[in-house]
Amino acid sequence: MSLEIEIVQIEREEARKHIAYQLVGRFEAPLLALQAEAVRVALWALSRGRGRPLSLEAAVSGRTLLYRARQILQPYAEAGAVRPAEAAGASSLLQPSMLKRLHEQGDLLMLSQAKECWLPAPARLVPLGSRYVLAGGLPSLLLPEALRQQLRLHQTLRLLPSSAGRNWPFAFQSLASWLGPQAPSLQELNLFFQHIPLTNVDRPPDESDQIEIYLPWASGPQEKRWQPLAQQRSAQGRYLLRWRQSQPQQIWRYSIALLDQGRLRQEQELAADHNIPRFCYALDQAAGRLNQAEWIATAPGGPLALHLESRLPRREYRLLQALGEQQPKDPKDARPYRWRAIAAEDRPLVEAALQPLGVRLMERPGRSSLA
C-alpha cells in the first residue's frame, strides 16, 4: 500500500510539473500565474490559431474562453496540485474575475461589455521603476528564448529586467498610460462634491433603511469612519452617504446628500464607476485629516515593507500590485493595509503616487515582521 501511495504521489507531482512547464516554460510556478497564462494561451489559440489575423471576427466570448482555459488547467487540478478549498473541480480553478483582472492590466481587449467578447492585446513593455511589465496577450512561450529565460512571474503579471528593453521586438507603453486615465485631483473632487446640484428626496429614509455616513474626522482607517446615519442626529450640510443594496454581498450605492439635523433633504446618486476611496481621501483633506503610511526596512539596503492606514484608490493600488506583494490585512493594526518586497529603488515611484493623496509617510527602522 505504501508503495502504491508513493507511486501516485510521484505521478501527481510529474503531472503538476508538466502543466506548469507547458504553460510558462518552467516546472514551478504560482497557481495565480498559471491561471493567467492559461487564459492567454486559450485566447491566443482561439483567436490567432493557424495564423489567423487579429480581427473582430476572431473575438472570443468570455464563456468559451473560460471553458478552454479550464480545460488546460484540468489536469493540474486532478493532479492534486492545489488545495481542495481552491479546487473542488476545474471550474473553481478559474473564475470570470480573472478576465476582468487581465483586462485591467492590459493583457486582454474587451470588444463588447454586454457580450464580453475578447481579443489578446498587443504585446508591449511598460517601464516600472527597476523593471518592465510585459503587457499583452502574447503567451510566454512565444517570447524569444532570451527574454523567456529572464521572465519573472508576479501574481498575474509578467516582469522583465530593465535590460530587456534593449532588444525588445514589440511596442512600448508609458507607465501613466498603462495605469489608466489620470484621476481627478483631490481639490477637483472637493469642488465637485460642494457644487454638484442635488434634488429633493421623494421619501425620507426610515429606520429600516441601512444608511451610513462618512465622517472624515472619525478615528481609524477610512472603512471605520462610516457610521450609521441614524446615530448622527446633529449632522448638518453635505455628506457622502452609502446605502446597503443587498446582503450578504454587502453591495452599496453611494450618494452626495444634504442633511438637516441628521435628516436627509436632498441627494444626488454617484455613478457606479466613481472611485469612492479617492473621494474619501478628498473629504479627508478638506477636513484637515491626513492618512498615514509607514515605511519599514526589512534589512539594510534590502526590500521595504509599506503599511497604510487606509486602502488605496484603484490607480495607486494597481501600481503597488506591480511593485510589491500584498499581505493579509491586519484589522488590529493602526495601519492594516500591508505590502512587502518593494525594491528600495522603487520607493520614489511609490511616494510620488501617494503624495497627491495627502498621505503622510513615516519611517520605522529595523526588521519587519513581514520579512
Rank of each mutant, 00 (worst) to 15 (best):
residue 364 R to S: 00
residue 111 L to K: 14
residue 27 F to K: 11
residue 334 A to Y: 05
residue 10 I to G: 11
residue 65 L to C: 00
residue 169 P to S: 08
residue 362 M to Q: 04
residue 139 P to K: 05
residue 353 A to S: 01
residue 126 V to R: 14
residue 124 R to A: 15
residue 244 R to P: 03
residue 173 Q to W: 02
residue 59 A to G: 03
residue 251 I to M: 12
residue 233 R to V: 04
residue 114 A to Y: 14
residue 322 A to K: 06
residue 115 K to G: 11
residue 88 A to H: 14
residue 283 L to P: 00
residue 146 A to E: 15
residue 365 P to T: 02
residue 167 N to T: 11
residue 145 E to Y: 11
residue 350 V to F: 03
residue 35 Q to H: 06
residue 291 N to C: 09
residue 41 V to M: 02
residue 18 H to T: 15
residue 278 R to A: 08
residue 249 Q to W: 03
residue 98 M to D: 04
residue 236 Q to T: 05
residue 137 G to E: 04
residue 45 A to S: 00
residue 225 R to E: 02
residue 140 S to Q: 12
residue 286 A to F: 13
residue 276 I to G: 07
residue 218 A to E: 01
residue 51 G to S: 00
residue 220 G to I: 05
residue 121 A to P: 09
residue 41 V to A: 00
residue 5 I to R: 14
residue 340 R to W: 09
residue 300 P to G: 10
residue 364 R to T: 01
residue 169 P to K: 01
residue 180 G to K: 07
residue 53 P to R: 00
residue 206 D to W: 13
residue 116 E to F: 13
residue 216 P to G: 10
residue 354 L to N: 01
residue 295 W to P: 05
residue 355 Q to E: 01
residue 226 W to Y: 04
residue 315 R to Q: 14
residue 150 Q to W: 14
residue 203 R to D: 14
residue 45 A to P: 05
residue 35 Q to K: 04
residue 234 S to L: 12
residue 363 E to V: 06
residue 191 L to V: 14
residue 123 A to S: 08
residue 66 L to Q: 00
residue 365 P to L: 00
residue 361 L to Y: 03
residue 31 L to R: 07
residue 223 E to R: 00
residue 20 A to C: 08
residue 93 L to T: 07
residue 48 R to L: 02
residue 67 Y to I: 04
residue 52 R to L: 01
residue 233 R to S: 01
residue 124 R to H: 12
residue 47 S to P: 00
residue 369 S to G: 02
residue 293 A to M: 04
residue 266 Q to C: 10
residue 233 R to A: 01
residue 145 E to M: 12
residue 270 L to T: 12
residue 105 Q to W: 11
residue 164 A to Q: 11
residue 197 P to W: 07
residue 346 D to W: 06
residue 274 H to S: 15
residue 348 P to Y: 06
residue 345 E to T: 11
residue 35 Q to G: 01
residue 38 A to V: 06
residue 104 E to D: 13
residue 174 S to W: 12
residue 244 R to L: 03
residue 335 R to P: 01
residue 57 E to Q: 06
residue 133 V to L: 15
residue 279 F to S: 09
residue 42 A to L: 06
residue 218 A to Q: 02
residue 24 V to M: 04
residue 101 R to A: 10
residue 84 P to Q: 14
residue 125 L to V: 08
residue 26 R to M: 06
residue 45 A to G: 01
residue 340 R to H: 06
residue 204 P to W: 03
residue 259 L to T: 01
residue 109 L to F: 07
residue 254 Y to R: 10
residue 371 A to S: 03
residue 13 E to C: 11
residue 166 R to N: 15
residue 338 R to T: 05
residue 127 P to L: 08
residue 84 P to G: 15
residue 50 R to F: 06
residue 213 I to A: 07
residue 174 S to P: 08
residue 163 S to Y: 07
residue 110 M to T: 13
residue 262 G to E: 10
residue 320 L to V: 04
residue 330 D to A: 14
residue 114 A to S: 14
residue 3 L to I: 12
residue 305 A to C: 06
residue 126 V to K: 14
residue 270 L to S: 09
residue 96 P to N: 15
residue 209 D to G: 10
residue 324 G to D: 04
residue 165 G to C: 09
residue 108 L to T: 02
residue 145 E to Q: 12
residue 73 L to R: 02
residue 8 V to W: 09
residue 298 T to E: 08
residue 285 Q to G: 07
residue 107 D to R: 03
residue 313 P to F: 13
residue 291 N to E: 03
residue 15 A to S: 13
residue 302 G to H: 12
residue 188 E to R: 04
residue 303 P to K: 06
residue 92 S to W: 14
residue 267 E to F: 13
residue 33 A to C: 09
residue 308 L to A: 08
residue 241 L to Y: 08
residue 328 P to S: 09
